[in-house]
Design a protein around this nucleic acid. Structure first.
Length: 492
RNA sequence: CGGGGUGUAGCGCAGUCCGGUUAGCGCAUCUGGUUUGGGACCAGAGGGUCGCAGGUUCGAAUCCUGCCACCCCGACCA
């Protein structure tokens, strides 16, 4: 069958690609490293976006939009920042094409060279802080709590659908504050927003933490992150929030006059999540039959499949009943689709909607109609039950809640089982190789040791969990004293 | 950027080693019919610059040279 997907255990990467492509989320495009997000995948993104956007508004943020292009000079104003992004920037050098003198299409017009080259934004700190300079004069102008939904480009060497593409969609919040404390509080607050979103909506348990110096965002003083675990035991950073200190205020000379009449540098944060979340969603819950989507984000909650009968009257009655159920569900805010396509057989449809991850399937045939029931199947466990048509809306409403909870619980158990404490290097390597997942181990706190561990094991420090328990110990690599355990893992 | 692999119909592939009629198969598509409680069946039809550009040859999907694209694994990254 053309729709068959690779078994997860056989080839996890191929399984993932199959889900994305055959599940109808995205396609490869004509441009290297760039993907086409198809309607089904885009709806998923819209659902993610809408919920997050509501959360941002709830926490006092407003949306704005800044240019796609950044003057090259801006990027070089913050030393760490340039270094972090310089290697993966797309650059616009010309502004015009002309007909090829040899008659073969168009060529870049050498006459149309830009005075100053433009960088396609890999992130917007620089263009935004250059703008904030003009917005901020007084303490009364602060804080600025702005978010933007945008695309960014990072010219990655190696790309993967949703997880790492050259162009991707995201949101980036950029805030300006009068004090360091306020900015830190903002960064922490937004991390918590992300964590809540991941857990409540994506049914994805995450570890909240801070990054080590090596893994910190280029230009940040502190990077907070949420880390999730995928079914293959690899970690995935699902969101980050940065306390930028005064680095960008210094670089762009953004100062305000305090209540005391003193000129002060502004404090900053930035935070973002991207379409990568869709990759996380896929890898966290799906199985060998296809996607498994949490109800709170699934494009559709329910598909109703009426059986087609030989008897036209019966078929008509089934269609009507399907519509009736749909209306009932719709009244409860349940997103429902009816598939009464007569050219496809039921078995085909079952497989198709399982592949697409619809949380609930409702099947209704002549026998059900007589008995006043429908067959309701849940995607997460595959269980089927005969349900009375009387209060099917309530049953399904409850079922969707159960599915959402069950997905979270399943992912949580998996995550808990895959955080392993180790105290020796041999154990460390053994867990990474065989058990996989997060490894909680002592580290002497130096970047050099972290690099060495990465080199030897391919594992990185995913984070130092927030409110981490302090505990005396010895670094698994160097034996030097350590005050706390940190989480290592191989990661996406 | 290194290593490996693949480019032949919308998708998946065979054919390439060893050149030779009209390039084939499965799925999908279209038409007609029979079907429909877990990926239906029968009959017929349409669909191809064999990745691109050169070259060798009477003759190239097949041999030679160059290029390009994509996938996988590594280094780098959200």
């Amino acid at each position: 069958m053309s729709k068959e997907i690779t078994n997860k255990d056989k080839d996890y990467s191929q399984w993932y690609n199959d889900l994305v492509l055959k599940g109808g989320l995205a396609d490869y495009s004509a441009v290297r490293g760039c993907m086409v997000i198809k309607p089904y995948g885009y709806t998923l993104w819209e659902n993610i976006r809408d919920v997050l956007d509501g959360m941002f508004k709830e926490t006092g943020h407003v949306n704005a939009y800044f240019p796609l292009f950044i003057p090259k000079s801006f990027l070089s104003k913050e030393a760490d920042h340039v270094e972090g992004f310089a290697k993966e920037c797309a650059v616009v050098t010309h502004y015009r094409l002309k007909n090829d003198p040899d008659g073969k299409g168009v060529v870049v017009d050498p006459e149309a060279k830009l005075e100053e080259e433009l960088i396609v934004r890999p992130t917007s700190e620089t263009i935004i802080w250059n703008t904030y300079k003009t917005w901020i004069q007084s303490w009364r102008d602060l804080p600025i709590l702005v978010n933007q939904w945008a695309n960014v480009v990072r010219w990655e060497m190696r790309t993967r659908l949703f997880l790492r593409t050259a162009e991707f969609l995201w949101q980036e919040g950029h805030t300006a504050h009068a004090t360091s404390e306020e900015a830190v509080a903002e960064a922490e607050k937004m991390l918590e927003v992300y964590a809540n979103f991941a857990e409540e909506y994506m049914a994805l348990p995450v570890v909240r933490g801070v990054k080590s110096a090596n893994e910190r965002f280029a230009g940040a003083v502190e990077t907070y992150c949420i880390e999730a675990l995928m079914q293959d035991g690899k970690a995935l950073q699902a969101g980050t929030s940065h306390f930028l200190g005064q680095n960008f205020a210094k670089a762009f000379d953004v100062k305000y006059l305090s209540k005391e009449g003193k000129e002060e540098l502004v404090w900053a944060t930035s935070w973002g999540v991207s379409t990568r979340l869709i990759g996380a969603l896929i890898m966290a819950h799906s199985d060998d039959k296809g996607l498994v989507l949490p109800p709170k984000l699934a494009p559709f909650h329910v598909v109703i499949i009426p059986f087609i009968s030989k008897n036209p009257d019966e078929t008509q009655a089934l269609r009507e009943k399907a519509n009736e159920i749909k209306s009932l569900l719709k009244a409860k805010g349940i997103r429902t689709q009816i598939d009464d396509d007569e050219t496809k057989r039921p078995g085909f449809k079952f497989a198709e909607y399982e592949l697409k991850g619809y949380p609930v399937r409702v099947v209704i045939g002549p026998r059900d109609l007589t008995n006043g029931v429908a067959e309701v199947a849940r995607r997460d466990t595959g269980e089927k039950q005969s349900v009375s048509l009387e209060n099917i809306d309530q049953t399904i409403d409850q079922l969707l809640e159960d599915i959402q909870k069950n997905l979270y619980q399943k992912a949580l158990s998996f995550r808990e089982e895959h955080i392993t404490q180790v105290d020796t290097w041999d154990e460390f390597m053994d867990v990474l190789e065989n058990k996989t997942g997060f490894v909680s181990a002592h580290w002497d706190g130096t970047p050099a040791t972290e690099d060495k561990i990465k080199e030897l094991s391919k594992a990185t420090i995913r984070c130092i969990p927030l409110n981490n328990k302090l505990e005396e110990g010895k670094c698994i690599l160097t034996g030097q004293p350590s005050k706390q355990r940190v989480l290592f893992a191989r990661a996406y």
